[in-house]
Design a protein around this nucleic acid. Structure first.
Lengths: 216, 216
DNA sequence: AATATTTGTTAGATTAGTCTAACTTATTGT
DNA sequence: ACAATAAGTTAGACTAATCTAACAAATATT
């Protein structure tokens, strides 16, 4: 058996090892806001359970089984977020803390029902992919808005950060997933991006924002 | 703050003190399947928090605030059961273990959304009343089928026991809440009850069953 | 009423998950 | 290359929630 606490460590390892080999004790400690010795002893425990690869003074990594478990927790989290938005009338900036709790519910049928009722979605409300029941995470080929070039027409496909503040900001700016727009200018000085949505007046997005907007 | 474990003790106290003044350590211990010394120290902790009245060698009772808290947990449990059945397609014998976990989710808005989507129901799928947001439990005037007399026409309104086995038994016998029927005979010898639903052939229910069926 | 049994309490141990303080190993900067 | 700094580890303490063993109080039985 695996406790909610242990699940949270696996999830953090998974999230921090995207585009990277290992995760350092320091990174994990900061990300979870838990002191290093605590992280350390938990890593040893998860290593004993065969979910983490642990070698003294080296970064940690998930074992194949650990990776699968982590993906399944993320699956439950993202299905829950989608369910809260699509079936319960929540806004996309309200769902994270609730999903954070519901992802630990132990009932396969509960999440299967959600999946069915949602019509087997591939992404959550923030455009993040939902891992399969086998723990496979489909790779989605989004790029940062800040890496695009002037003149391109792109579609807003996902956000790379789901903090309530950022999501609220986008909601207030009427920026929703699926929205298509043209890049009319990128400011050399501060990297801010001007976009134009059909005939509406152009909107300026700072680099801080355009870094977190993923488009296709 | 109050932990899920503490919530479970409050719920148990509430359930066991229906139609009774206090709850003994022994009863609680058996009901929760937790040893007496553990129950004892938890009662002291809840007494420190002002939720339980504790006096050495006397039965425990909930304080006014403890009673309110307990009712709110039961509210979350019952709303969840109703949501699982009405909105997610579960059967009434499947929902208890899931609701047992979801009742501890900390998010008022989550349960308010459920309540709204369900149209503010007054009972759960087993006919048990849902406490109000103020922690008030409406009293419903059901009586046991086994206490009725021959010739009465009654409506199946609730069950007094929600074990999956019993609920499955009723489901297989096509006995659902809201069903009306006439009591055609009560056997003196074993207390079994014969009922007749419209023109269908009569059904015999043992005393064990008719004790747990509540009608109006 | 005296004793036996059941019920309740206290004491001490255990595991999970956290911390701080102290120490060790790695990395970095001159 | 070596000292300074950062990162990782070990040791020891704490709280929550559980247990067993031993003791005390209440209740039941003869």
């Amino acid at each position: 058996m695996i406790s909610p606490t242990e699940e949270n460590y696996l999830k953090a390892l998974f999230a921090l090892s995207q585009n990277k080999d290992g995760v350092t004790a320091n990174e994990l400690s900061k990300h979870l806001d838990i002191k290093m010795p605590t992280v350390n002893s938990m890593m040893k425990r998860l290593a004993d359970k065969g979910l983490v690869n642990y070698e003294s003074y080296k970064p940690f990594s998930l074992s194949v089984e650990g990776k699968r478990r982590a993906a399944l927790i993320i699956r439950k989290h993202r299905l829950t977020e989608m369910f809260l938005v699509q079936k319960m009338g929540f806004e996309w900036d309200e769902v994270h803390p609730i999903a954070e709790q519901i992802e630990h519910i132990q009932s396969d049928i509960f999440f299967e029902k959600m999946d069915f009722l949602l019509g087997y979605p591939h992404t959550d409300p923030h455009g993040s992919p939902i891992p399969s029941l086998e723990g496979e995470l489909p790779i989605i080929i989004n790029k940062k808005l800040s890496d695009c070039i002037v003149g391109q027409e792109v579609t807003f496909n996902a956000v790379s950060n789901s903090s309530p503040e950022f999501l609220k900001f986008l909601k207030d700016k009427k920026m929703a997933l699926g929205l298509s727009f043209t890049i009319v200018n990128i400011e050399d000085y501060d990297g801010s991006v001007d976009i134009k949505i059909q005939d509406l007046p152009k909107v300026t997005l700072s680099k801080i924002v355009s870094d977190k907007i993923l488009v296709v």
